[in-house]
Design a protein around this nucleic acid. Structure first.
Lengths: 144, 144
DNA sequence: CAAATAATGTAGCACAGGCTACATAACCAA
DNA sequence: TTGGTTATGTAGCCTGTGCTACATTATTTG
């Protein structure tokens, strides 16, 4: 076919998805920490444990990895993001919000839009994001 | 906010994403095997190794797990799907194709649509899928 | 036929990301 | 002050999903 469905192309696509997976948790963590700080709270292990629905042990282990990766700083009282962590969080937030808005715009319920966005946001290319943004703006224009 | 952003809700969303992840590989495998068989080929370890871009060892280990889960049968010459495996493959294929068509419809390139669909298809709820289908049909109507 | 190649398998390692069980430390309350 | 509760940490286990290294078997080819 003309769809680029040879094995090599498929392999590249699957490798990309695996790369995306290995970044998902980090993005979710920095985003959660970012949101907590934005809300004027001190970001703690306990908060993350509740947000992600895992034990505090899983949170601590993840935070250790992410600290090593230079995304955050656990030396002080609450969790702090590094510049890189904040950058990643901001990018994730933009992506996340755009996906939610887009899903809402095509008629998905608030609840489901938020739920789906959680999984989808990590697998959307810049090109697709741009397409969603275009459609979102076009749709808004129609509504006015 | 009214978006259901309390911790418990967030936890449920993240737990759902983790469940989706634990099924992704199985879905990708049965879909690949299904496609090979549909194309009149004998599905072999080698094919999957090329399609997924991993070593044959990773394929063999994955196949062992999926055989235990009752999704496929490795007793014969080529790989065969069980009824359950075939059912999963068919469902995945429908989802996958709809996502590709939808992305194409909103202006994403063929190449990128196929690439993104690979990651997205596992995280889309029935509700969102239905919304995409509606928009797809509406768009087609406009085009005619 | 003998040697190379392809296909498949096993052994054993690494890392991510879950978990329980157990140890502290700090704080709060009777 | 002593005894629970909360927050955080470590030790150590499991599973999934990658990997390399090393068989084995079948097929192909000089």
């Amino acid at each position: 076919m003309a769809t680029g469905n040879d094995n090599q192309t498929a392999a590249r696509r699957h490798q990309r998805v695996r790369r995306q997976h290995s970044n998902e948790l980090a993005q979710d963590y920095v985003e959660a920490i970012y949101d907590l700080i934005e809300a004027g709270q001190v970001a703690r292990v306990t908060d993350l444990q509740e947000i992600f629905g895992v034990t505090h042990v899983s949170v601590v282990r993840a935070l250790q990895r992410f600290e090593k990766r230079g995304l955050l700083d656990r030396s002080g009282d609450g969790l702090q993001l590094t510049d890189e962590g904040r950058k990643m969080a901001a990018a994730s937030a933009v992506r996340h919000n755009l996906v939610v808005d887009f899903l809402r715009a095509i008629g998905v319920s608030e609840t489901q839009a938020h739920a789906d966005a959680e999984g989808l946001e990590h697998h959307i290319s810049d090109e697709t994001l741009a397409a969603m943004k275009r459609l979102l703006e076009a749709k808004l224009k129609i509504k006015n």
